[in-house]
Structures are given as C-alpha cells and as structure tokens.
Design a protein around this nucleic acid. Structure first.
Lengths: 152, 152
DNA sequence: AATGAATCCTTGACTGCTCAAGCATGATGC
DNA sequence: GCATCATGCTTGAGCAGTCAAGGATTCATT
C-alpha cells in the first residue's frame, strides 16, 4: 500500500477517535455534541453572531438540510433563534441568543481543555501543531479560523 | 481560539472532505463505500484473509454491532463469507471470498489513484506525506499498514 | 457437576447526516 | 405583466454508525 493511501486511512481513523473524545466531554459537561459546538462557534465568529442558514451550511461543509436538522435542537433549548430578513422573504438567519453566547463560553473552555490535552507535551511541540495545521489546510478543509466567504 | 483547538476542528473538516472524495469514486466504480473498502482491505491483511469479527471491530475502531451491520451487505453480495470456529461456538469469522479478493484488487487500484491525486505534487512532497503520517500516528489512530512502504 | 462471570455476536431504538422532492419567494427576459 | 428560472429552506426516506439489552457459548471457582 502506498504512503498516500496509508495516510488517508490514518486520517480517517484519527478523526473518528478525536471526535469521540470531544463528544464524550462536551456532551457530559454541556449536553451538546461536537457538531453542535462547531455550529455555535461558527455563529459566534460571524458579525452580529448571526448567519444565513445557507451560509452556515457552506461554512461548515454541510448541506442545507443538515443545518436545518442540526439547529433544530439548539433552537429548542434556546441557544439559537431564527430571524427573518426584511428584504428577502426566502432567507432565515440563525442567531446566537444571550444564553447561547454564555453557554458557548463554557463549552469553549472545555473544548480548549480537551484540545490542549490531546496536543500536549511532551508528545506534541508547538511546532508540531503548527506543522499539522499547515498540512491539513492543504487538504481543502476550510477550517474555522477564517472570516468566511469573501463578498462576491 | 488556540492552535490546538483550531487544528482539531481542521482535522474534522479535512477528514469529511476526504471521505466524500473516496466514497464518490469507490461507489461509482465499484459500488462500495470507503468503510466497505476499509473492511475488505483489513481482512486482506489478515492471515488467511479472515478475522474474528470482534477483532475486525477492534482493528477498525468500530463496535461489534457496527461490524455486523457493515458486513451484512458485503456478505449478501458475496465478497465476504461467515465461517465458524470448531473449538469455540461463540466466535464467527469474516473471510474474504475469491470474488472478494478479486474485486478488492480493483478497488485498491482506484483507492491508490485517489490518494495519489489528493497528495500530489507540487502541493505535496513525499516528505510532507511522511510528516503528516507521523503526526497523525501520534493521535492514536492505529492505521492499517502492517507492511507499509519500507524506507528507500 | 453447578453456578456465576466473561466473551462473542445480533437486534431494536436512536442520532446525525445525506439526497431528492417540494414549497415559497425573488430575479430575469420577453 | 407574466412565464420561467434560481435561491433558500424544510421534509421524507434512507444509510451508517452508536448504545443497551439479550441469547448463546465458554471459562473459572467451588
């Protein structure tokens, strides 16, 4: 087996393990999944803590229906609200509530903690993390640090 | 957001994109998913092309029930058979059939092709792939390459 | 031997995503 | 003004995995 295929399969394995770890802690402490957390975090990074749902889908690499299904429970428990656009009747926004912002702050602390544990010394140096980030960025995953899609 | 958390989320994104790419091609050409392919490949690497189902689960990072559900369609289309253990009535083996072996050879060629495209020059050097592999291995994903490419 | 614990596997119920179809709404061209 | 197309979103059906429970078999202790 080539190195390229090997590393592909390795990546798949590594991710599922990582997701399990985040899910376990986040759901235990805050009752949300990593996917939930990622949605909330992405909203937090948008101006006004709100995004059109279709843009949220794009930013997260999901389909529109994935966003509908993913946001539903977050709306139900009051972390996110739906807002309409006065100019365009088609669009709906997803917006963080005050509660959502507050809860997200706690989740973020937990997530940082987990990430710090996973990428901890002595196995991981700061440079290693940077290298991994660089390499992963080449793989087309947009990541979340950016500001989203630039204006057309 | 810390680098550690950023790289975690980046890893998640990169993997889903990669899986989609493999799934698209493998299902188009061979009618199997990446998960199917990974199962078959793992069997191929076991002595006699067969494994206890529980060991297969362990090797793939799945639960036993995940293996039951994943193998079912592969048994149905004749790529895998179930074998019993004469000494221990509890265990069942999953074994590659001749058809399975043959089909897997084709799938492997396709998968190698995709991996080669993804990790292609000029964006990726051989060293980059090696570095990424090393870093991912630290993340706990066991990987699949028992007999990976030896160093030159 | 007999009981109790452990192991292997399957099944039912659930989650979280996908695709395909459908419904509003808005934009465009005649 | 109006047909047609594009866009934003939701919904039904399905798929791949999980966990919890249960059945069958084996192992260990007495």
């Amino acid at each position: 087996m080539s190195d390229a295929l090997d590393v592909s399969l390795r990546l798949v394995r590594a991710q599922t393990a990582l997701v399990k770890r985040f899910d376990a802690t986040l759901s235990g402490l805050h009752g949300v999944s990593l996917a939930d957390f990622t949605m909330l975090l992405r909203l937090r990074q948008a101006p006004g803590d709100r995004m059109r749902r279709v843009d949220l889908a794009e930013a997260l690499g999901l389909t529109a229906s994935g966003v509908t299904r993913g946001l539903a429970p977050l709306e139900r428990i009051g972390l996110v609200t739906r807002e309409t656009d006065a100019r365009d009747g088609r669009v709906a926004y997803a917006a963080l509530t005050d509660t959502g912002r507050a809860r997200l702050t706690d989740m973020l602390a937990s997530a940082e903690q987990i990430a710090a544990e996973v990428f901890t010394a002595p196995l991981w140096s700061k440079e290693d993390v940077g290298r991994l980030s660089t390499l992963l960025t080449r793989l087309g995953g947009t990541g979340l640090s950016g500001q989203g899609t630039p204006p057309p």
